[in-house]
Write a protein that binds this DNA or RNA. Structure first.
Length: 726
DNA sequence: GCCTCTGGATTTTTT
DNA sequence: ATCCAGAGGC
């Protein structure tokens, strides 16, 4: 019975109760993933359930990947038969297979945020509204909120009260029409249409219901109404549905996650067994108690007491720094110290913050100290312009109706097709009931009513030839070769290399080719569709790599589901964390609290809560009191640290030679400092000087500087505390 | 049609 | 501080 060994009583019960609906409330570090994976293994190995009759749904690809890896250890190869993936990926697959029943093209594309925004902007204009006055983003989130509750445009209209809602209603209708014309679905549609398919086609529903004997849903507190509806539909026949979640870790209600689903579950499945996993295996007693003291202030909360057999542990360090620079410096120096004392490794450390903008000061400090780090998130790979351009070409090849992609690439690289020309092309196509793609082929045909002459006509005709050429030639090519074809035919490299950071952009494109390679095996152009779907449905958080030995810089939101020995939470100040926008809303304030709870419970051994006396943000310096969350921690849990105010002014402390920096850290230091021979620099100790040159030394890079006062000095670049003087 | 300048906004972002 | 979109000039 090795599947059950090592599980505690509650975990065992949760694994062994295989019949009927069950709800598992799983605190942080309580072995949630362990329970899910062992439950699946138990079903397969002990109960003899065929893996293809199990569906396990997660929210992130990262969670899906982790689950898959753990299952491979437990089960071996049969994991491939299991349906395991995100809601979106699973629904996309269902719609590819059966979506035709409700009029969805097999080749539909999936529109990401940017595509959606383009379409919505156009929809607003089409409704005769001014997109400056009516923010497309606001409309889009209203539409997304509606979709996540399965509210159709029509239903939305019936309920619309305010003028805003009435306008949203119009735009929503229009937006859906545009999606249909483009044969595109947005993220929310994947869910909504799957549910609609099940509603409209009882045979299809019954097919899936009969197949899935067991349904498992992870992070159930983050489900919205559509996702819950989908879950109920799939589980409708056998009712062996197991949902796992923790209301205290619900931090995505602003994305329409609905904690009420947990209550609804108990109502929809009155016979549901409920299991509580309250033993924590991750954190010290102090960490766990601190986290609970913060979250238990919440009123809208079902009480739950976590406990651990782990040691008492060190006190929580509450650190006050002078400003955000000193804060960052403290973190870097503390990581350095812990490392030197052998208390931790780089990859065991994480720095968490409320907003992405806070990462800059941290990055700078880590660069100066030469401590390798990885920033999670930031500008996302798949949202970079050059990547989106190439993907738009591919999408267009895959689906000629995709007008958003067509518009994107029609003048990238620039080929003399401007806004006016684009507008009249769209007008003409719409007026004569053609798709834009078809209209494009007729631009030279004056008898067909083409409004184009001269230069514009020529440019459009050229573009048409290009696109037809790409479409024809790519038919027999795999994903990588199709990318190469696009690059070649559009001369994209030259275009991108004109750019200031063209080199980097080109490397991104090469990276995209690498990603595409793994889809090549799907054979000819089938690979292209699955490649496109794959890249649209992944996020940057998935690139988090726990094997790389570097410090992790991450937002609190993205940190959910991870664990580290040492956690620094920086920016623990009122109006930053809790965020200013949460102040006039009790529910939002409670969500901030949960977010803090999530952050603290990521830690195994040490927690630092750092706040700064003043902080420069958006160009203005403000002073805010320490976060109220700190006040909620019992004082015997805390050790207060004041960083030296003197140290904050200009002293970066002595160079830290104990640490050998990675080469990429040096390179980044060089890029960040942007130093070249001849530049004037200032050093905190040596004063002003001129950069003489760079040289390789001991595997590192040295910078040679001629200082006014102390003469020529050689400094290790990664450690040189140099400031450029203009 | 392309380039540059200015003004507005800037929480979090599983997909 | 900084990034982006749209307006207006060349």
């Amino acid at each position: 019975m090795d599947i059950l060994s090592g599980l505690n009583a509650a975990q065992k019960q949760a694994v062994q109760t295989t019949e009927g609906p069950i709800l598992i409330i799983a605190g942080p570090g309580s072995g949630k993933t362990r329970v899910i994976t062992h439950r699946i293994a138990y079903l397969v190995k002990t109960c003899g359930v065929s893996p293809d009759r199990i569906i396990a749904v997660t929210f992130t690809n990262r969670a899906a990947r982790e689950m898959k890896e753990r299952l491979e250890d437990l089960l071996g190869a049969s994991v491939t038969d299991l349906t395991l993936g995100t809601f979106h990926a699973i629904c996309a697959r269902i719609l590819r297979q059966r979506g035709q029943d409700i009029g969805i093209d097999r080749n539909f594309v999936i529109y990401d945020d940017e595509d959606q925004l383009n379409l919505m902007k156009q929809a607003i204009v089409d409704c005769g509204l001014d997109p400056k006055r009516y923010s497309p983003r606001a409309f889009l989130s209203a539409v997304s909120a509606a979709k996540s509750q399965i509210i159709t445009p029509q239903q939305y209209g019936e309920r619309a009260q305010s003028q805003f809602e009435k306008f949203v209603h119009q735009a929503y209708q229009r937006y859906q029409q545009s999606l249909a014309i483009c044969k595109a679905l947005d993220f929310d549609d994947l869910l909504v249409k799957a549910v609609e398919l099940f509603n409209q086609s009882p045979e299809t529903l019954s097919r899936y219901q009969s197949r899935y004997l067991h349904v498992l849903v992870d992070e159930f507190q983050d489900t919205n109404i559509v996702q819950y509806t989908f879950t109920k539909q799939v589980a409708g026949r056998y009712r062996n549905v197991c949902v796992v979640g923790d209301p205290d870790q619900s931090i995505y209600t602003w994305r329409q996650a609905d904690i009420r689903n947990i209550l609804s579950f108990e109502k929809d499945f009155p016979d549901a067994r409920v299991f509580l996993l309250e033993q924590n295996y991750r954190s010290t007693k102090r960490i766990l108690n601190t986290a609970q003291s913060i979250v238990s202030v919440n009123v809208q909360r079902k009480p739950k007491e976590l406990w651990t057999e782990n040691e008492e542990g060190s006190p929580i360090s509450v650190v006050e720094s002078y400003d955000e620079e000193e804060e960052a410096r403290f973190v870097a120096a503390e990581v350095e110290r812990l490392l030197k004392e052998g208390k931790t490794t780089l990859k065991e450390c994480a720095v968490m913050y409320r907003v992405n903008a806070q990462s800059r000061a941290l990055e700078e400090a880590f660069l100066r100290y030469g401590i390798p780090y990885r920033l999670v998130g930031g500008t996302r790979f798949y949202q970079r312009r050059e990547i989106k351009d190439i993907l738009a070409y591919l999408k267009l090849i895959d689906n000629p109706h995709d007008n958003v992609s067509l518009k994107r690439v029609i003048n990238a690289p620039a080929r003399g097709i401007g806004q006016r020309t684009v507008d009249s092309l769209w007008q003409w196509a719409k007026g004569s009931g053609m798709s834009v793609f078809d209209a494009l082929a007729l631009v030279g045909d004056a008898s067909g009513g083409s409004p184009f002459t001269g230069r514009a006509q020529h440019a459009l005709a050229e573009f048409n030839t290009l696109v037809r050429n790409l479409t024809d030639k790519s038919k027999t090519l795999n994903a990588t070769d199709t990318i190469d074809l696009v690059l070649d035919q559009t001369n994209y490299k030259n275009y991108i290399m004109d750019d200031e950071d063209g080199e980097e952009r080109w490397e991104n494109i090469l990276e995209l080719r690498t990603v595409a390679r793994q889809y090549n095996s799907s054979g000819s152009n089938g690979g292209l569709s699955s490649f496109l779907e794959g890249v649209t449905l992944v996020s940057e958080a998935d690139t988090y790599d726990d094997k790389e030995n570097v410090v992790t810089l991450i937002t609190l939101h993205q940190a959910k589901g991870l664990e580290f020995a040492v956690v620094f939470i920086v920016g623990m100040e009122e109006k930053l964390f809790p965020h200013a926008r949460a102040f006039d809303n009790v529910s939002e304030m409670e969500e901030e609290r949960r977010l803090c709870y999530v952050g603290i419970t990521r830690a195994k051994k040490l927690v630092y809560l750092v706040h700064a006396q003043r902080r420069t943000f958006l160009g203005a310096t403000t002073a805010n009191p320490p976060s109220r969350f700190i006040d909620d921690i019992p004082s015997d849990m805390i050790k207060t640290i004041l960083t030296s105010p003197v140290a904050s002014v200009s002293n970066w402390g002595p160079p830290l030679q104990s640490f050998v920096p990675q080469t990429d850290a040096i390179e980044r230091a060089r890029i960040r400092l942007d130093l070249h021979p001849g530049d004037h620099v200032r050093h905190t100790k040596f004063g002003e000087g001129v950069v003489v040159g760079f040289s390789a030394a001991r595997g590192d890079e040295e910078i040679t500087v001629a200082f006014k006062d102390v003469g020529m000095k050689r400094l290790l670049l990664a450690y040189a505390h140099l400031e450029k003087v203009e």
